[in-house]
Design a protein around this nucleic acid. Structure first.
Length: 427
RNA sequence: GGAGAGGUGGCAGAGUGGUUGAAUGCGGCGGUCUUGAAAACCGUUGAGGAUGCAAGUCCUCCGGGGGUUCGAAUCCCUCCCUCUCCGCCA
């Protein structure tokens, strides 16, 4: 959520930022409601001040033996006017608030302006030693679906039977490899990057979904358990960021850094047909997520570090990847700046998004009311929140299986995972 | 699922419908004392909003929402949450 005062004072800046995100702006509507709101407040408060003043007089007058019936009658009218004004005020405020909840965060000044993913900027890439985009023997590599079937480690058909399409089943060494990967990533962030581990709830309430910005805008993309008012999480970002909702953090504890595993559930409404085969687009997947709560002045440095933390995993696994800085038009609703990390898929012959690292500045903190006490000024300030996948296993698994396949159709387990799997090769 | 208890400031914990934003204790901050520290003592210590260049003035907030009243932390209704016991259960 943007600061209403900021919108009031910088309407053109806000309009431009929203336009750069390819969103419709309702700034004029906001300014009008805000004006109306402040008029109502001024009027209502004037009457309340009067009521308070007279109400304090009444017991004194009574004590002095005066007749107060006339004053009571008059105050009754004042009270009724207040009630009326407050009803209007509440109406205006809820309209205003509802619109504000749909206003996206503004892109940071360092973000390139652009319409779509076409205009994202490649920042750097990393390729393992000896890597080549061409297969050495000219044989077309098998894709992850073929490998999964051949090695009997992935079962998309039975997943579809049990749940529906987009709910993959891992079997045998595939299941072990998935588990190994999750444990490896968690351990790595704990041991090398100074995060502390959270194992979060997978179902959250509506307030949490609003806090991180999934709701109300992305309602259609979220699973919803109506009976209990709960939402299966689309990412661990939601429960982990909301751990500190409505809290005041100590400045000396910042940055607070959490890492946690969760299953992630996404309806992917309207996306059937696109990239729908295998792991490329699924309704349930596994992800290790990093979340940070930081002081505002450090958040862009922390974003760079966050990306590095995710990169370290890929370098340890020796998976080729590249980093993209998203252009304004490709930024998500709540993000001010975002880097995507894409891993290479030899069979698809293209890059696949495996991580997304974002700085939300105070957008989520304002919605979720997460603050810290500034030791110098003694004032409360909103923290900046960041999060990044470190990483999502589904796309990463595609890259691992495909990059580590042998000419015989086996898959070597990446060396750093071998002590987690207990075996070195699949097939 | 059944029964009961309770939700008040950072925490603990008072609170007859009328200067109660709220006693008291702990904690925090500042000070006195001390070589330093502790102890003791004194003072101070919530948030949000409207208005204003500012100083300030005013309004709101005692789980959420609604009601009674000139006036509500205090009375009524309703919802939510937490805890305890019983039942069920991985």
């Amino acid at each position: 959520m943007l600061d209403l005062k900021f919108i009031r004072e910088n309407p053109e800046k806000v309009k431009q930022g929203i336009a750069n995100k390819n969103e419709k702006d309702r700034v004029d509507e906001i300014l009008q409601l805000d004006k109306h709101r402040r008029e109502l407040i001024a009027h209502s408060e004037e009457l309340k001040a009067k009521r308070n003043q007279v109400s304090a007089e009444i017991p004194k007058l009574k004590k002095a033996g005066q007749d107060v019936t006339e004053i009571l009658a008059e105050m009754k009218k004042v009270s009724d006017s207040i009630t009326e004004l407050d009803v209007k005020l509440r109406e205006v405020e809820s309209q205003l608030n509802e619109i504000l909840m749909y206003i996206p965060n503004l892109p940071h000044e360092s973000v390139p302006v652009g319409k779509s993913s076409e205009e994202n900027v490649e920042v750097r890439r990393w390729l393992p030693e000896g890597f080549s985009f061409e297969s050495e023997n000219g044989i077309k590599p098998l894709d992850h679906i073929e490998l999964g079937k051949k090695l009997n480690i992935l079962d998309f058909e039975r997943g579809a039977k049990v749940s529906g399409s987009g709910f993959p089943v891992y079997k045998g060494k595939g299941a072990t490899l998935e588990r190994a990967l999750i444990n490896f990533m968690l351990d790595y962030h704990l041991q090398h990057h100074g995060y502390s581990e959270i194992f979060p709830p997978f179902l959250v309430n509506r307030d949490s979904m609003r806090g991180t910005g999934q709701l109300p805008k992305m309602e259609e993309d979220m699973y919803h358990i109506e009976k209990d008012g709960l939402y299966p999480i689309p990412t661990a970002e939601v429960p982990i960021t909301n751990l500190h909702r409505e809290e005041v953090l100590n400045e000396k504890d910042l940055p607070v850094k959490y890492v946690g595993y969760s299953a992630c559930f996404r309806r992917e409404a309207g996306s059937y047909g696109k990239e729908s085969k295998g792991f490329l687009r699924v309704h349930q997947f596994n992800k290790v997520e990093m979340v940070k709560f930081v002081k505002p002045e450090t958040s862009y440095d922390e974003l760079e570090l966050l990306v590095k933390d995710a990169e370290d995993i890929l370098q340890a696994l020796k998976i080729p990847y590249r980093i993209l800085m998203l252009c304004s038009g490709d930024l998500s609703f709540a993000a001010a700046k975002c880097y995507d990390i894409e891993t290479w898929s030899p069979a698809e012959n293209r890059w696949l998004e495996a991580s997304s690292c974002s700085n939300f500045e105070d957008f989520q903190a304002r919605r979720a009311n997460i603050r810290f006490r500034n030791d110098q000024t003694k004032k409360l300030e909103y923290v900046h929140t960041l999060n990044g996948s470190g990483l999502a296993t589904s796309r990463l698994m595609v890259s691992i299986l495909e990059n580590y396949q042998t000419p015989e159709g086996k898959v070597i387990v990446p060396p750093v995972l071998q002590r987690y799997t207990g075996f070195n090769v699949i097939g």
